[in-house]
Computed example of a mutant assay.
Amino acid sequence: QAIIAAEPDALVGVGYGDDSRTVFKNARELGFDAPWYAAYPSIFAVENEEWMDGKLSGVDNGGYANDGGAAVLAAYKAKWPDEDEPLAHIYYGYDAMMVLAKAIEAGGVESAEIAEALPSVVQSYVGATGKIVWDDRGQRIDPPLDIIEYKGGKFETVGTIE
């Protein structure tokens, strides 16, 4: 109520699933009608598609538009044709398993062998989420991000930051 009383030009939102559904519903019922921006808006649960149409946008896990991402999506849709678009977890899980499989193939099945093979495997891997680059601690850096907007009852990718 305090935020809406301040009449902001926009909101930067955080939330997850049903939590965001409640926040959106309360804001709508209190008369808020400005844009919402968020990191990872695709994990939000939109409470009222018509009210939110064109209002919610932000950056999300990305890189799925490449050939690897398209192949994962096609396999997903072939197996579950009636399901909604998969969340980012599908693409990232696929890449994690593929990198692990390639490390086992290159180095062996023991944990030390896998750990030793991972850095070289990652250097040449381009998967469902694009090219993977690690820092010196083995953390992914500079992953692709998609700029998405909620339109017509679904999220649309309107740009990508590589």
Rank of each mutant, 00 (worst) to 15 (best):
D136R: 09
P119V: 11
L100G: 00
V126L: 02
E116N: 14
W134K: 01
G127E: 00
A115T: 11
A106G: 08
A115I: 03
A96D: 09
G107L: 06
E85K: 09
Y92L: 12
M97F: 14
A106Q: 10
S120Y: 03
G130E: 07
D95P: 15
G127F: 00
E116A: 14
G138K: 01
M97C: 12
E85W: 08
I141G: 04
V99P: 06
P86L: 12
V133C: 01
P86F: 12
S120V: 03
S124Y: 07
R137V: 07
D135M: 11
G130T: 03
D135Y: 06
K131V: 11
G107C: 07
A103I: 03
I114G: 06
A106D: 06
R140S: 14
D142F: 01
V122D: 01
R140I: 15
D142P: 02
A128L: 05
L87N: 08
A112M: 06
L87S: 09
Y91K: 04
G107K: 08
Y125V: 04
K102M: 09
R137C: 10
Y91V: 13
R140V: 15
A115S: 07
E116R: 12
I132V: 15
A117F: 04
V126W: 00
A128I: 05
S120H: 08
I104V: 15
G138N: 10
I104F: 08
G130I: 02
E116W: 01
G93R: 05
I132A: 07
Y92N: 04
P86R: 04
A112E: 15
V99M: 15
Y125A: 09
E113D: 15
A112P: 05
I114K: 07
R140P: 08
V121N: 10
L87E: 10
G107E: 12
Y125L: 09
